[in-house]
Each structure stands twice: as C-alpha cells, then as structure tokens.
Nucleic acid binder design. Structure first.
Lengths: 396, 396
DNA sequence: GACCATTAGTTAAGAGAAATTACTAAAGCC
DNA sequence: GGCTTTAGTAATTTCTCTTAACTAATGGTC
C-alpha cells in the first residue's frame, strides 16, 4: 500500500537520512535485541551507516545497548533495544462516553492512564477539561525524569487528511472543530508535536506500530462502538494510514447493507450502523443513553429479545468483516471498540459468519487472523501516542 | 494512501536520484510545457538539480524541448514536453472474450492496436497466440524508429502482490499461472521489463497515469464485465496501486450484498456478482456465452424483462459504487468494463442511485465525480503499458 | 542604441550521506 | 599465544543535492 512517508514534492539528503533512521528504528522495534551487524544485513544498509545512525539514536535516548550475545566464534554483537526509560508520548481519546488519557514509552508500555466517564459537551469545555486531566497525568512520578515527545488526540469522526481538523463527529454533535487550537488556548505545557486523528485510525496505527512480534503486512481495525468505523494501516518501515480523499476512508458504518432498510442518522436507509452499532442496540433494547450498554445487557443477558438482537447484530458484524476483507484484503483484522465488551453473544456469531464465508476467492483457505480486543478502553489513546512517536522519529 | 515507490529496505543515493527523476517526470506529465524554472518552483528542487535531471531525460529521449515562452521581462523559458516520438510501451489484456494489444507512446497515445475476439483457452496456447500477435504488432511502421520500454500484461484475476503470478482467473479457469514465463518461452524479442497485473489494477493505473490534466488525489476504477473488480490508485509522483495482503484488494464482486441470496461461483451466496455482472445477466436473460452481450441486449432492449433486469442490475451497480466510496473514499470513480457498453439502461440507474445516496457523511455535498468509459476495450491494455512506463522511469 | 532589470539556465564549489575499504576489538578454537 | 571469525569504527571515495556565481536572453528605459 501507499507509504506514509513519502516526500511531498521531492527528496533531499535530509529526507534520505530520515528514511534510513526510521528504517533502523523500525527494525529494532520489530526485532528487539538485534546487533548493529544484524540490522545491517536486515536493512541492506552497510555496517558503517548503521553504526552512525545507532550512535545518534543512543545519544538521544531512543535506543539502549543490552547484553552481548556470542554466535559461535567471532566478536559478539551488542544487543540493541528501544530505550523505554527516557521519553514518553501522550495520547488521548475524546470518546462519546468520556475521555481517556495515556502516557506511553517508546515500547508502547502504558506508564500512566486516566479516564473520565463524563460525556464531552462543547469542544471548548472539553478542551478545558482535557487540559486539566493532561496536566494531572503529567504529574505522574514516572514521567518526571522523561522527555515528552508530543501529544496525540483521537476523535470519533473523520479528520481532514491534510490538516488537523475534525470534520464531523455525529455522536458528539461537533462540526469542523480545530481541536488542537482549542487545546493550545489552554496554555498547556506539553512539548513535542501535537496531532489529531480519527479514533479508528489511531487505534489501527497503535495496534500495528506496537505489534508484539513481526506485524502483518497490513491490518484493518474495525471499531464498533456508538458508530462503526475502520482504520487501515500498512507499510514496512513507515506505517501508512489510508485516509482517502476527504478523510472518509473506512467509514463503513454507512455502507448500505439493506437498501430501503431502517433509517440512519446520515440520511440513508439500511446502513451497516442500522444493523449493528451502539446506538442501534440501545434503541432496539431500550437502554438509556447515559447507562452502560454492556452492563445493562449483561444483566439482561437471558432475555430472548436481548439474545436475538445480539445474535442478529453479531451476524451483521461478521458480514461487515467479510466485506471489509473482500474490499481491502488486509493481512489481519482486529475487532475493537466498546461493543466488544458485550462478549460472546455478539462476537461469536460475527466470527462464525466470517469464518464460514471468508474463503472462496482463491479456492483455498485464506485464514486471515481476526483478533478481538475485549477491552479497548485505551486502544485509541495509545494509538494516538504511537502516531506521535512515529512522527517524532521522522523529525528527530 | 500508500506509496508505490518506497524503498523496501532502506534508501541509498540511487534511490534519491530515482525519486527526483520520477518527480520531475511526473511534473512534466501533469503540466506539459513547463520550463525548468517552473519545475523547480513546482517541485521544491533547485534549478541546478532540475537542470541536471532534465539534461539526462532529454538525452535519453524522454523529454523534448518546445517553444520559448516569455513572461513579461526576463529571459523566456524553454517549454518541456514528454517526447512521444522515441519510445513505446506494449500493453496487452487477456480478457475472457479475447485478446487486446496496444502500443503507446510516453504520452499515452495509442500508436497501434490489435484485438482478437477469440476466447483464450489454455495458458500455454494463449501465450503462443499472444506472442504471435505481439510480433505482428511490433511490425507496425510507426514503431520501427522507436525503442521498446517493455511489456505489460493484464489478466482477469488476482495477481500476487510481490510476484508476477496470476493466482486465479475464475472466468478463464486458470490457476496459479506464471504467464510471463510462458511468454518468454515463445522467444519473443521484446526489450525492457515485463510485468503482469490484474486488469482492474492496470486500467486504474492507466486512467490515473495518463489522466488529462491534473489527476485527482486518487481514483477507484470499477471494472464491470464478466465479473466485477476494482482497482485503486493514488499517490502524487509515484502512483501506487493498492493490492492488499494477497492481491485481493478490490475484489468487490464477492462482497456480500444479500446474505442467503443467489449462489455465486465463489461458494457464497448473494455476492455483488449475483446482482450485477456479465455472467449473471447472461444467465438471467438467456444470452449464450459465445454471443456478444451488448449486441444481444441492444436488439432486445424493448423486452420488459430485459429492461427490468438492466434496471435492477444498474441499481446494484450504484449500490456497489456507494459502498466503494464509503469504504475507500477515492477522489474520483471511474466506471469501465464491457458492461458499460450496455449503455443508459444499465448506467443511468447506477449513477442515479449513487448520486441520491452519496451525501450524508459530512452533512454536505461530497460531489465525487463519476466518469463512465463507454468503450473500455483497450483501457486495461493501455494501463498495463502505463505501468511499464512507470517502472521504466524508476529504473532509467 | 546603450544600459539596466529580470528571469532562465549552466557551471563550479561546498556540504551531506552512504558505500567502500581498511582497521581495531573481542570472542572461540587450536 | 596465535589463528580465525565476527562486530564495530575510522578514513576515504563516490554520489547527490545545494549554494552561489556566472552566462544567456528578453523587455523596458533613458
């Protein structure tokens, strides 16, 4: 797929340097413990080049040297790891139901987290509240000795592909919000670069960037909560987020599955969200907007009506997974969002539908793995932090 | 979206040079008649760099100098154009109904074309037949004074993303065919690099690469013929084809629109192809496999059954366009493939459906242009030739 | 018509990055 | 201890882009 990190106009030597630095960093990220020599063979760069870049990264606290490991004869190589002790990135998610904040180190470990279950109101008030929580979070003892690389904000709606502007968050009622500017007016003292992204994109990016082990060629993260969104990330050394012309890539909640079906808030009928989404389940099962959907349905799990609704919604979710796969063909599907907390009654039929229908395109099993994140409370926030790290690596 | 031209492992100076050369070439391609100075301001490169690259491109016959154009005072700039007279690329499409061949110059003009309406049989026999036709085509007088940059072959099925192997062409009955190897055994004398791609990808690439005027940020080409496929191309200077993990990106013909609907040859039920596709229309309207669908239906255009079928299929096509848009958000949609020859009875309802439903995601008109290619006989073949040119530009 | 301002394009020198080569460092093996 | 092997560094070379100076060509002005 495309590449996140292509020079807009043309390339100078600076770009080349940045490219190689990011490549080396990505190699260590994916294969912790490699030596300089390993990196050289792995990336195709020469020992000398790798050595130079590694020196810079060590000096800046992005890498640390580990133990020696001998391999038969010869001088043993010095293992290299991401240094998780010198920096941190802030990530936040402004969700329909509340705010989530995390601070991560370079390895993706969460150093501190915080959440508020109070639903956002206006953009301005939310920015003020978020600023307060961020200030609190930054007081965590574990962060004091570290350098901040920046702040990422995830929002539940499409974001302009070329500017940090939220275009529309239907479930918040926000339109064309330049949220970072509102935050800046709060005179926050947060160093580094700030960025804004859609929650599904951020979550997808985080799952890809901080993947345990060698990440797949690409992933699609399906975010099922109040609405249904999807983020796609791919790319070897520069994870790339597919955004589309207007930032609407992955707005699969409004793909039409039943022409003439139930009306959707987008104006059409029979959108995917009218079959499976938080707002639809609440409507169908009479759960109040301020109550927790998962708790309410857990209590009422034995009601036939609840069972049937969840099974039906689950099947629709599987249907969406299938169409997503046949359209984007990601190497891995990840299912997250608050709806995964509804558990087996929803997830099992979704996976069953997908498993039963995914083959056929090549007349052989495709076996695309589907990973379900049971608790994705901080997934998008952590992903926003990952985006900050990726940008910092380029600008280093 | 991602970027076609990212170094797999790491970047050397060679890569940088190639990057800038391609950028400059892309600038001339998109804005014929620019001077060196214009290119410099346009790309951000310096006059010196541009001058050097242009000299090389002139020497190799990729560019030609045109007239002077004065702009007020000062020395007038020398217009630069792609040189359409020194090279050519060969492109072929192995279609379900026959073979199509074109030779293009650097500007995308078709210098020679040829087609055979005889359906392909085995891969080996088809390679032999194609080789003969290619040899014929290369005898065209207009090609004699030119250098061949290579050969591109488009096939109706998914191709491995990292190797020139056709994985499956259901409508040809081919499985895992290394078609370029079969062609090589024909001892063809065609210089340059050879490549293989899916027909929708090739067509999409060609429409993007040889776009008249400044191309949109990205395009999705929906190919409606025997089956339904889709190709997506994006990227500024290095048009990138989205391929997915297994080369199945854009296999939207098998997205499920009606669970439990009519059976599809892929094994599932209710795939998009069961609602709109060449094979479905033939089945529905009793058109023999060896007859021309468009001619048969043109004759029978007044039958209510034909009208109803086409209207229904057209609406399904619009539905597909809509879901494609909401999933990929391309800046432009192009509708091609042999089914567009069925004309208004099919196309009008498709466009009407799309127009009526495309808005809503941002609460404002999205106005994604939809371009219909009435006769796309040589579109995929020309696109394959475009891919050859793009590769040659990188390897130059 | 000489001169100047302005823009286009080339040439030459300088800076930066990676490749090549040669070297030092540190281990195992004999 | 010496040899072999591999890791990492240092010096040199090569390549590319940039900077700056220069030449080229035009229009405008006195």
């Amino acid at each position: 797929m495309p590449n996140a990190f292509t020079p807009q106009a043309a390339g100078d030597l600076n770009y080349l340097k940045s490219l190689n630095r990011s490549t080396i960093l990505a190699t260590v990220r994916r294969h912790p413990g490699l030596s300089r020599a390993d990196i050289a063979t792995h990336t195709g760069l020469t020992k000398a080049t790798v050595g130079g870049v590694v020196q810079v990264l060590l000096a800046r606290g992005w890498l640390r040297e580990g133990e020696l490991h001998a391999r038969g004869g010869g001088r043993p190589g010095r293992a290299l790891y991401l240094d998780g002790s010198r920096h941190f990135m802030l990530g936040t998610e402004v969700g329909v139901k509340g705010l989530r904040l995390v601070a991560c180190n370079l390895q993706g470990d969460v150093l501190a987290q915080q959440q508020s279950e109070q639903a956002p109101t206006s953009p301005e008030a939310t920015a003020a509240r978020l600023a307060g929580m961020l200030t609190d979070l930054c007081r965590s003892p574990d962060l004091q000795s570290r350098t901040c690389l920046g702040l990422g904000v995830a929002l539940p709606g499409p974001v302009k592909p070329d500017a940090p502007v939220l275009r529309l968050a239907p479930n918040l009622g926000w339109v064309d919000v330049e949220f970072l500017d509102l935050l800046r007016q709060q005179s926050l003292e947060i160093a580094g670069s700030w960025l804004l992204d859609n929650e599904a994109n951020a979550a997808a990016f985080g799952e890809f960037y901080f993947f345990d082990g060698t990440p797949p060629e690409s992933i699609a993260y399906l975010c099922a909560s109040s609405g249904i969104g999807c983020g796609v990330v791919s790319g070897d050394n520069f994870p790339f987020i597919s955004r589309g012309a207007q930032g609407l890539f992955g707005e699969i909640g409004h793909t039409v599955l039943q022409p003439g079906g139930a009306p959707c808030h987008c104006g059409n009928r029979g959108c995917a969200e009218t079959l499976v989404s938080g707002w639809k389940l609440r409507e169908q099962l009479d759960v109040a907007a301020d109550a927790s959907l998962s708790e309410a349905l857990a209590r009422r799990g034995d009601e036939p009506r609840v069972k049937a609704s969840l099974a039906q919604a689950g099947e629709a979710l599987g249907w969406l997974l299938l169409n997503l796969h046949h359209t984007l063909n990601p190497a891995m599907l990840i299912l997250g969002g608050s709806l995964t907390r509804l558990g087996e009654p929803l997830i099992a039929p979704a996976l069953a539908y997908f498993e039963a229908h995914q083959n056929g395109l090549l007349r052989q099993p495709l076996s695309i793995p589907v990973k379900v994140i049971g608790d994705s409370t901080f997934t998008a926030a952590r992903g926003a932090a990952a985006e900050v790290m990726a940008r910092a690596a380029v600008e280093l």
